[in-house]
Each structure stands twice: as structure tokens, then as C-alpha cells.
Design a protein around this nucleic acid. Structure first.
Lengths: 196, 196
DNA sequence: CTAGTATGAATGAAAG
DNA sequence: CTTTCATTCATACTAG
């Protein structure tokens, strides 16, 4: 809003795009690999990375394309917000459904809102994704600077998928949506996580 | 906190919107004219108007649409906060850029936003606006109750633009971002301004 | 091409 | 003041 004339300077102006075609975008369009990383971090429990972590994440993402701290910040902010909203919506739907069950035997068929998978191929919102069986985290390695390190100059999705084998899209059973702080270890790095 | 927001029955409501279409909004949406005024005040140096000034500003803004003191208060609070953040981000980017200059002869092209490959600045707006040539203030008239007075019942942007000729969107060269108080004269009215 | 949706970005409001 | 939340706007992408 605010009748902004964002055209002029909002140009992400990627000086040198060595990635795929870059027809000068007006806003950041995360690469599939970047989304994978972001999702994995988010689902690992770090839903609200502090400033310094944001910087690290950005640097990680930069292996796959231009990103700014702001982009990362916005991504997590939006991710949290929409995750929360979906959760709320589901709750509301459930409530309605329970009421309706009395009149129309719809049966508690909790559908998966948003089935249209994004470019990566996994459910972007993963609200009805299969539960994570166990710990669901990236714990167990070093910091993810190395976790996502690759052989050389041209990292590919393959490498990531290897490292992301523990990726767990369990939205409804996620653990860190509240406040209060618990410390979890992400790749051996103690990280403060908001909790209820 | 800050009981600025208290009742006053100035609910962000919008019971009677005589302005343009008002599809029942849940929050205040400042009109372009109002933004102009707010920006001009902010850029004139009054980045943190005291309570009484806030009231005056609100009354001024009301010529163009429903506003509450709380709205004005929040606006300045957010403006200060985000102005700061942008500043910080720019500084960080500059630092990075300077470092990179040593290895990759990017040539310290300090453009509006950071120009190097990526890490888009946090400030898509107004950061690289043209500098204010001179004093950049509204000083010189009466109080702005009259400064922004108009012919009659239907004030237009025209009138404002006349009075706002000194509007100065210079983010980086702004003068009052700190605390401590100095008194400046805005339109002949002594006003307390936080300063460093 | 248009309509609808997913989502990056912006910002008013509020919490901490 | 800083950070977060909720809402809204703008745009990339998609289906038809």
C-alpha cells in the first residue's frame, strides 16, 4: 500500500547472475534448493532464527542465488505467520466440522489444504504431511555451514537431499510455535528456540 | 506499553467514513496526503513528537481522514524503528562491501542500495532518495495548524505540496535518531526533539 | 489472455 | 526502543 513507487530502487539488481535466467525480478524468487534449506531449518525447529543465525542462513542460501538478510528475515516471518494461520484455520475447520457432524455425517475428513506443490515437489505447507516419526531434526552434524558443503563450485540439489534426509514436514505436530526459550542443538550448535 | 494507545474512544474504527470508499478496514490506512505530512514532519527533524505535538499532528491529519492519536504515535514509532534498522543494514552492507573491495575489485560503488551481487538492502524505499539540498525543515511559518490550512472544505494535495516544498527524504543523512532532547523551532513553535 | 493462488514485501498494531 | 504479530499489497506463477 502506501502508493509506493517501488520500481526505482527495489531492483534487486543482481549484478551477476550465474544461475538460471534472471530477467530482472522485482522481488526475490527463492530457488528450489533455497526453499529446501529454509524449510528444513524451519522444520528442524528453528522457526525464528536470531539475527546472527539469519546471516549464516543467508550465506548458506547464497550458494544457490542472490539473497539478502531481509529476504531471509521476511521468509521466516511469513512462514511463521502463515503456519500459524493455517493452524488456526484448521482448528476452526475442525470445530465447524464437529458441529456439522451432528447434522451431516461428513466424517472428519481433514483435507490437505493447499495441495499444489511448489517447484520443489514437497508439500509447501505440509499441514497434513505424515508425522515425523522421531526427533525430526538436523542434529548430529556440525554447523550447517558444513552440513551443506559441497564438492566444489557447482552444488546441486542432490547434495542437499542427502543432507536433508531427516527433513520432516510435520506442521501440526511442530514443537516450537510459542514463546519462552528452550535451547536445542542444531548441528551441535546450541540454539535458542521459542517454546510454550 | 505506552498508554498512548489508550481508549480516547478514538478507536481505529471508522464508523463514518466520508472520504473515499471505506470497505471497513481493520486498521488505519493513511491517505497519501497524510503520509506526506507525516514524512515531512519526520524529515523536518521531529522524529519523536511529544504527546501534545502528537495531538496537534493528529488534528492536522484529520483533515484528510480519520486518525487517532494512537495511529500517529505508532506511525512515528514504526518510522523511527524501521529507519534505524535500514540504517543499520546499510552500514552492515557497506562494511561488507568495503571488505570485499580488498579482494574482489568491485570498486566501492556505493550506490543507493548495496550494489554488490546480492544482499539486497533492507530498505526498498526512500533510502536513496535525493538529498535535501539545504536546511530541510518546515521552519519559517507559523505553527502547522496554519501551515497546512486550506481554502475551505476540500483540501487537496496541491495545497500540501506547496507547503511541503522542503520535504526531504534523506534517510542516511538524518539528524535526529538518538535520544536526549534538544529544542528546535518548528514553525516558530519550540519543540523538543530527541538528539544524540 | 484472464482469473486464481502462493508468497515476497510492507506496515499498522502491539508485545516485550 | 526492539521484536513480533496480523493484515494487506504486489507480483510470480499456474490453470483454464
Amino acid at each position: 500500500m502506501e502508493d509506493h513507487v517501488r520500481d526505482t530502487s527495489s531492483q534487486p539488481n543482481h549484478g551477476s547472475e550465474t544461475e538460471r535466467n534472471e530477467p530482472v525480478r522485482s522481488r526475490w524468487t527463492p530457488k528450489p534448493e533455497q526453499i529446501l534449506i529454509l524449510e528444513s531449518i524451519f522444520n528442524s525447529g528453528m522457526v525464528n532464527p536470531p539475527k546472527n543465525e539469519t546471516v549464516r542462513i543467508r550465506k548458506l542460501l547464497e550458494k544457490f542465488g542472490s539473497v539478502s538478510d531481509a529476504n531471509v528475515f521476511y521468509w521466516f516471518q511469513n512462514r511463521r505467520s502463515r503456519s500459524r494461520r493455517r493452524q488456526r484455520q484448521i482448528q476452526a475447520d475442525l470445530a465447524v466440522e464437529q458441529q456439522q457432524t451432528q447434522t451431516s455425517s461428513t466424517g472428519g475428513a481433514i483435507q490437505c489444504e493447499n495441495t499444489t506443490s511448489n517447484s520443489v515437489g514437497f508439500a509447501p505447507n505440509s499441514v497434513c504431511s505424515p508425522m515425523c516419526s522421531a526427533s525430526c531434526s538436523l542434529v548430529g552434524n556440525e554447523n550447517y555451514d558444513n552440513l551443506f558443503s559441497f564438492s566444489g563450485g557447482h552444488p546441486g540439489l542432490q547434495d542437499i537431499e542427502q543432507n536433508l534426509s531427516s527433513f520432516c514436514p510435520a506442521e501440526t505436530s511442530n514443537l516450537q510455535h510459542q514463546s519462552g526459550l528452550i535451547t536445542v542443538f542444531i548441528n551441535g550448535v546450541p540454539t535458542e528456540i521459542p517454546r510454550g
